[in-house]
Design a protein around this nucleic acid. Sequence first.
DNA 1: ATAGACTATTTGTTAACTGCAAATAGATAA
DNA 2: TTATCTATTTGCAGTTAACAAATAGTCTAT
Lengths: 146, 146
Amino acid sequence: MPPCRARYRGDGWAGGRPGRIRRFIEPAVLLLLHQGPAHGYGLAEGLQALGLGDYPVDVSAIYRALYHLEALGMVTSRVEAEGSAGPPRRIYALTEAGDAYLRAWIEDLRATERLLRQFLEAYDAHTRSHNEPDGSPTRFSEGDAR
Amino acid sequence: MPPCRARYRGDGWAGGRPGRIRRFIEPAVLLLLHQGPAHGYGLAEGLQALGLGDYPVDVSAIYRALYHLEALGMVTSRVEAEGSAGPPRRIYALTEAGDAYLRAWIEDLRATERLLRQFLEAYDAHTRSHNEPDGSPTRFSEGDAR
DNA sequence: ATAGACTATTTGTTAACTGCAAATAGATAA
DNA sequence: TTATCTATTTGCAGTTAACAAATAGTCTAT
């Protein structure tokens, strides 16, 4: 038996469908707060409008992002004085540090967007040149032990 | 003491610098293999060329991605018959399933790229309209307990 | 030879992100 | 009272990746 090369932990999306690139929640929350104070539940709806509609985000992730950002000093919160049709809301607002942090995130996302474009362009360029009429050019061939 | 709202696990990048959006390794490996069979160490160099140069990727992640893809039947491997300046290389190649999987990834990444553009556009639009002359419009103000 | 440098693969550990499920709780309507 | 809606909180488990280090083959210089 070969040394059983280290398993990936878990086995992925057994269904075969890739998941989206992650880590959008934090910058999305920051962007929404950049547009004005809000509470967790409201942010969940705001995410839809931001284009995240196809990728529903669990509210627990939003609250955890908020707690994290507050611990880092990127947002502050205060309990809303009445007015909710439920338990008291906690309203979050960006701090100046949070504003700077969002700007850093934006720069990072711009770089990511460029990378993504470059990546997709590389794929398109390669498939254009090999517009495979039939055969599959990257597979191993019969005596391919070179 | 309030019910100590659930901590984020860990404490983030204490330094304050955001990390990049993740999950690039698998599609990057697939794309490189789409261009022809390769071994793990070689893929590590290929990633630089793909634009990942700014974000160095640990080789262990590459190998684990390969093991995972092989378990899923997306790639096949064979040990190279001699020719290495080191231990025998294991050469990986895309299968047809892997080809389809890459196409699915590409579609997913196109959607992500659109989302990212939309996101950045929303930020730019909002900062353009509020090109804050001085004050910070999203902060809490003095008697802001509404 | 043997020590060091380089190529190449493998493994362990841990942190971090997220989804799913469910508990909790106030307000309001049937 | 029960149900429903709004809203927050927590537990848990699965997935991804960085960091560190072990292993091992080949080649060059001493």
